[in-house]
Nucleic acid binder design. Structure first.
Length: 295
DNA sequence: AGACAGGTACAAC
DNA sequence: GTTGTACCTGTC
């Protein structure tokens, strides 16, 4: 995609960008380390850097960075090479997706770091977003590298596999991850001590990569598909959480459809774009509470 | 008080 | 293969 990129005083300004809304991007459930500031911008940590993202009119302003970092990191991180408009046209042939796309029009799927996503989504199992976020912040503060101060706050990188592999399980539980502590510890040890290589798994096709990821304890069908989609560029992955299950049953299938059937249905219907469809549907369902049983 | 929240492991059929 | 249940923790 062609954008007009300019650098100015520790900022990178992107003009002419479409399909980019920080609220949609950072609150659609794919990431846990971005927080909204008082001015409506978002500040977050990725690749051992602190970044602030703000939209003004048709400009996206990335603060605390420069052109070199933009080219090396943020362009891919924000998936700026992809034409979301074209994809949204395809999705709009489906009446349900058309509404979901309208609702989450500025969603983009981030290209995040595999180890961070592996651990983060292990922690996400049967958990709630605010608690997942606070646990990950505690983990980063205790075991991650201090990467500096921005706007009066201190920031820490997500811990490495090496760092986490050396923490014992009881101590890990102080980050309030509960029964998932043993899975986190085990995953870190596999990556650091046992030579399990996430970058290699990323090179496999979706089916084989999923098989390898499911060998981690605490990684089942849903978590593995999140890792594939959010950190391994496997856009045919179709993670089914409670919200996706609800909206698929509500609009496309009938109640009490098994996970396997929903998975098959989604993959066959949306094919190589299943991951994007899932993300629009998830955000739409969760924000509107679609399919949630009323009390 | 008790259910519930971005599922998974494990056992039982 | 498919189904049922326990599970850390904090908030409603």
């Amino acid at each position: 995609m062609e954008y007009n990129i300019t650098e100015d005083n520790n900022k990178v300004i992107i003009e002419g960008i479409r399909d980019f809304d920080p609220v949609h991007i950072f609150e659609c459930g794919q990431c846990f380390r971005w927080n909204r500031e008082e001015d409506g911008s978002f500040t977050g940590v990725a690749f051992e850097r602190v970044l602030n993202v703000k939209v003004e009119n048709d400009k996206v302003i990335l603060s605390n960075t420069n052109i070199e970092e933009f080219n090396n990191i943020w362009y891919d991180y924000f998936d700026l090479g992809r034409d979301y408009g074209k994809m949204k046209e395809i999705f709009s042939q489906d009446e349900i997706l058309k509404e979901a796309v309208k609702f989450g029009s500025g969603i983009r799927i981030l290209n995040q770091e595999p180890f961070e996503i592996l651990i983060s989504f292990i922690i996400s199992a049967n958990n709630a977003i605010p608690r997942i976020k606070s646990s990950i912040e505690r983990l980063s503060k205790r075991y991650g590298k201090h990467i500096g101060e921005y706007n009066g706050k201190e920031y820490y990188a997500f811990p490495t596999a090496e760092a986490l592999s050396k923490v014992d399980i009881e101590e890990l539980k102080e980050t309030k991850i509960g029964f998932r502590a043993k899975y986190v510890s085990n995953a870190a040890k596999k990556v650091y001590n046992e030579g399990v290589n996430l970058d290699y798994i990323k090179t496999l096709d979706t089916t084989h990569a999923r098989e390898e990821l499911m060998k981690f304890q605490g990684v089942g069908p849903k978590v593995s598909d999140c890792i594939l989609l959010f950190s391994m560029e496997k856009y045919e992955a179709f993670p089914i959480d409670v919200w996706v299950k609800r909206i698929m049953e509500y609009f496309y299938l009938k109640e009490d459809t098994s996970m396997n059937k929903i998975q098959k249905y989604g993959e066959e219907k949306f094919k190589d774009l299943a991951g994007f469809a899932q993300q629009y549907l998830f955000y739409y369902a969760r924000e509107l509470g679609i399919g949630k049983k009323k009390k």
